[in-house]
Simulated scan of single mutants.
Amino acid sequence: MSLDDFWYDEEELLNCYAKAYQRNIDCVAWTNGLYTLSAVESAINNVMPLAVGIGMGGGKIKPIEYFDKPLTEIKEESDKEKEINEKESVLTEEGMMNGMKKLNNIIN
């Protein structure tokens, strides 16, 4: 972001740059964590397969599950799902009844 953009453009542009920067950092951290996990898992399986196998019931250890996506993307998806669920609950009869009760409380 240039200084001219920072000083004279809208605040929303700064927020977008900050959000993009945070997402980039999160993606890099996720990738580094994935590489680290793979390296440690590979080292343990190759250096001590028998010791690990005895403790785990024989064979090599199962791969550890790691996040499919960076945490910010997971959080955004869960927020979207929560928002959709809230909108769907309003459309149900129960949601309508609750809305009518709230409206009556506000009026009275």
Rank of each mutant, 00 (worst) to 15 (best):
S2I: 08
L3P: 04
L3M: 11
D4E: 14
F6H: 05
Y8S: 07
D9A: 09
E11N: 06
E12K: 10
N15P: 01
N15M: 12
N15D: 14
C16L: 12
A18S: 11
A18Q: 09
K19G: 04
K19C: 04
K19E: 08
K19I: 09
Y21M: 09
Y21W: 04
Q22M: 07
Q22N: 06
Q22E: 08
N24H: 13
N24S: 14
I25L: 15
C27K: 09
V28I: 15
A29T: 11
W30P: 03
G33S: 14
L34K: 15
Y35R: 14
T36R: 13
T36G: 01
L37Y: 01
A39Q: 13
V40Q: 11
S42H: 12
S42K: 13
I44Q: 10
N45G: 08
N45K: 15
N46I: 06
N46S: 15
V47C: 12
P49H: 13
L50T: 14
L50R: 12
G53W: 04
G55Y: 08
M56V: 08
M56E: 04
G57I: 07
G57L: 14
G57W: 06
G58N: 05
K60P: 06
I61A: 14
E65T: 06
Y66G: 13
Y66A: 15
F67P: 03
K69F: 10
K69D: 10
K69V: 15
P70L: 05
L71T: 05
T72V: 05
E73W: 03
E76Q: 06
E77Y: 02
E77F: 02
D79V: 06
K80M: 13
K82E: 07
E83S: 14
E83N: 09
K87E: 15
E88Y: 10
S89M: 10
V90Y: 02
V90G: 00
T92C: 00
E94C: 03
E94A: 05
E94H: 01
M97L: 04
M97I: 00
N98L: 02
M100D: 02
K101L: 00
K102A: 02
K102T: 01
N104L: 01
N104K: 01
N105S: 13
I107L: 06
I107K: 01
N108A: 05
N108E: 07
